[in-house]
Simulated scan of single mutants.
Amino acid sequence: MTTALQSPLPSHPVLRLRLASGSGMPRPIDGAWWPRSCDLLSELPQLLAGLPRAWGHITSVTVNGATWPAVPGRMLVFNQVVRLHRTLAASAPHTIVLLAPGRGRWDLLVVPPDTTEETAEPLMAAAAGGHV
């Protein structure tokens, strides 16, 4: 009698997010996010789930329209509406802006999904360290 080995159940990929330490000082970038695709509808829920609870409920997200091609006006994430905005501002092509009423605004560097790990890791470390 032979026993077939079962492959392990697929797991959710690890969120690739690095946040700056909470120094209380204003900073231009609050960390870095390295999504696995350019599909904002599938990537955003995982990002929002991985944010610190202290950030509160993110109600508004602004992304660059060139980086994220298809963005509806809003989406339901964990039974809460999140408004999505697109900008074509040349000043911040690789950022995402997260807003939580009464809590604050956070700007994250978005490392393009097709970036190699050798390139992405130093970018994320620099963003988390406030050196971007």
Score class of each variant (00 low, 15 high):
Thr2Tyr: 13
Thr2Trp: 12
Ala4Phe: 08
Leu5His: 05
Gln6Tyr: 03
Ser7Tyr: 10
Pro8Leu: 07
His12Met: 10
Pro13Ala: 14
Arg16Val: 08
Leu17Val: 07
Leu17Tyr: 04
Arg18Ile: 05
Arg18Ala: 14
Ala20Leu: 07
Ser21Phe: 04
Gly22His: 12
Ser23Tyr: 01
Met25Ile: 13
Met25Val: 14
Pro26Asn: 04
Arg27Val: 09
Arg27Pro: 00
Pro28Asn: 14
Gly31Glu: 00
Ala32Arg: 01
Trp33Asn: 05
Trp34His: 14
Arg36Ile: 05
Ser37Pro: 00
Leu41Asn: 07
Glu43Tyr: 07
Leu44Trp: 05
Leu44Thr: 01
Pro45Glu: 05
Pro45Cys: 06
Gln46Arg: 15
Gln46Val: 03
Leu47Val: 02
Leu47Cys: 01
Gly50Val: 00
Leu51Val: 07
Pro52His: 02
Arg53Asn: 02
Ala54Leu: 10
Trp55Val: 00
Gly56Glu: 06
Gly56Met: 09
His57Pro: 02
Ile58Tyr: 06
Ile58Glu: 02
Thr59Asn: 09
Thr59Pro: 00
Val61His: 11
Thr62Gly: 12
Thr62Lys: 11
Val63His: 05
Gly65Lys: 10
Ala66Arg: 14
Ala66Met: 04
Ala66Leu: 10
Thr67Glu: 12
Pro69Ile: 05
Ala70Glu: 15
Gly73Ile: 05
Leu76Gly: 02
Val77His: 04
Phe78Leu: 13
Phe78Trp: 12
Gln80Glu: 12
Gln80Gly: 03
Gln80Trp: 02
Val82Pro: 03
Arg83Gly: 02
Leu84Arg: 10
Leu84His: 11
Arg86Gly: 02
Arg86Ala: 14
Ser91Pro: 00
Ala92Leu: 06
Pro93Gly: 07
Pro93Phe: 09
His94Asp: 13
His94Leu: 13
Thr95Val: 14
Thr95Trp: 02
Ile96Met: 13
Ala100Gly: 01
Gly102Ser: 10
Trp106Cys: 05
Val110His: 01
Val110Phe: 01
Pro112Ala: 15
Thr115Asn: 11
Thr116Phe: 08
Thr116Glu: 12
Glu118Met: 10
Thr119Asn: 14
Ala120Val: 08
Ala120Cys: 09
Ala120Met: 09
Glu121His: 09
Pro122Arg: 08
Pro122Glu: 03
Leu123Glu: 13
Met124Leu: 12
Ala125Tyr: 00
Ala126Phe: 02
Ala126Tyr: 01
Ala127Arg: 01
Ala127Glu: 03
Gly129Ser: 15
Gly129Met: 11
His131Asn: 12
Val132Ser: 07
Val132Phe: 10
